[in-house]
Amino acid sequence: MRDSSAIHPRDPRLDGKHMVVACSREHLSQLIEDYKRRPFNDAELWAGKIARAMFWHSGEVSEEQLAEETGLTPEQIERGVTWQNNEIQRRRRQSGEPDGGPEERG
């Protein structure tokens, strides 16, 4: 199924594809419907590609390396990073954590 949150740990060709397993035809139908309702967000996919590259380089990678390893353009990298930052802020708001993270609680 198409899924912008699905990032394969090693094979970029499998990014954006979520394998589903169901115990019955009815269950499979429900899974398909669930994924159809979930929007595919390119920026979310790009954020995942960036995260994978950062992981394999222990968080230290040049912009050039990042573009080469992810296959993304500088604009796509910027949009992926922005999406990730917005997602972090959204999750913090949902949990009641200050926007700046634990260090702001002093």
Rank of each mutant, 00 (worst) to 15 (best):
F40I: 01
Y35S: 12
R79E: 12
T82A: 10
P9T: 04
A51S: 11
S62F: 06
A22F: 00
Q84G: 08
P39L: 05
A67R: 08
R13M: 02
D15P: 04
I77F: 01
N85S: 13
S62K: 02
V81H: 02
H27C: 15
P12T: 09
G59I: 00
D11P: 06
P12D: 11
S29E: 15
L31H: 10
T70E: 05
R25F: 01
S24Y: 05
G71V: 04
I32Y: 10
T82F: 09
R79H: 00
P39M: 03
L28S: 08
H8V: 00
S58Q: 09
Q76P: 06
R38H: 10
E78R: 09
M19R: 15
F55S: 12
P12R: 15
G59A: 02
R25Y: 06
G71F: 06
M54S: 11
R10Y: 14
L66D: 04
V20F: 07
A47C: 06
W56A: 02
F55M: 08
N86L: 14
S58F: 14
D11E: 15
R52Y: 02
M19Y: 10
R90C: 00
K17V: 11
R91Q: 13
N41M: 11
V81A: 07
R91E: 11
T82R: 13
E75R: 10
E33K: 11
A6V: 03
Q84K: 14
D15Q: 08
E75M: 12
E68W: 10
G80S: 02
I77Q: 00
H8F: 02
Q84A: 14
L72F: 11
K36G: 11
I50K: 00
W46H: 09
L45Y: 01
M19G: 10
S24T: 11
E69D: 12
T70V: 00
W46G: 01
L72D: 08
P9R: 12
L28E: 09
H27G: 08
A67H: 07
W56N: 13
D11S: 01
E68G: 08
E33C: 08
E75L: 15
K49L: 02
H27S: 13
N85Q: 12
